[in-house]
Simulated assay, not measured.
Amino acid sequence: MASQYITSGPPGNIHFFVVCTLIFFVHLFTHIGQAIFFRRLTPGALTSALLVLPYCLILYQQLFQNHIVTWGMIVISLPFAVLIVPVLLTAHWIGRNVV
């Protein structure tokens, strides 16, 4: 979506992209937090720290630097990112109880 913006102009779904990447960014802290809380390695902790965190930092640095995303877009997208929290909690509950 970011490359589409640069080559073709603003895409209609850049807000959806921002919401998804915000969720991706915030969710990585749950994996790292779980590893700290349980004082042992948890699934996703290494991947979050070594891959997802640098990816998100570089992604947002480039999006802000190229004026594709603004702080206003982040503020507008945050409520939608927060609305996904119950879905994530339900997915974790299903994973713990069903699997």
Rank of each mutant, 00 (worst) to 15 (best):
M1G: 13
A2V: 04
S3R: 05
Q4H: 14
Y5E: 03
S8W: 04
G9T: 01
G9M: 02
P10D: 10
P11N: 01
N13P: 09
I14A: 04
I14F: 11
H15W: 03
H15L: 11
H15R: 06
V18Q: 03
V19Y: 00
T21Y: 02
I23D: 00
V26N: 01
F29Q: 12
I32T: 10
G33A: 08
Q34M: 08
Q34H: 08
A35D: 07
I36D: 15
I36E: 13
F38E: 09
R39S: 15
R40W: 09
R40D: 07
L41E: 15
T42A: 05
P43C: 04
P43S: 07
A45T: 02
A45C: 10
A45L: 06
L46T: 02
L50Q: 11
V52I: 13
V52M: 05
Y55M: 08
C56D: 08
I58K: 06
I58L: 04
Q61A: 10
N66A: 14
H67R: 14
I68L: 10
V69W: 00
T70D: 13
W71N: 02
G72K: 08
M73I: 01
M73N: 06
I74A: 00
I76Y: 03
L78A: 12
L78R: 00
V82R: 11
I84S: 12
P86A: 04
T90G: 10
T90F: 11
W93T: 05
I94E: 14
I94L: 11
G95N: 10
R96T: 09
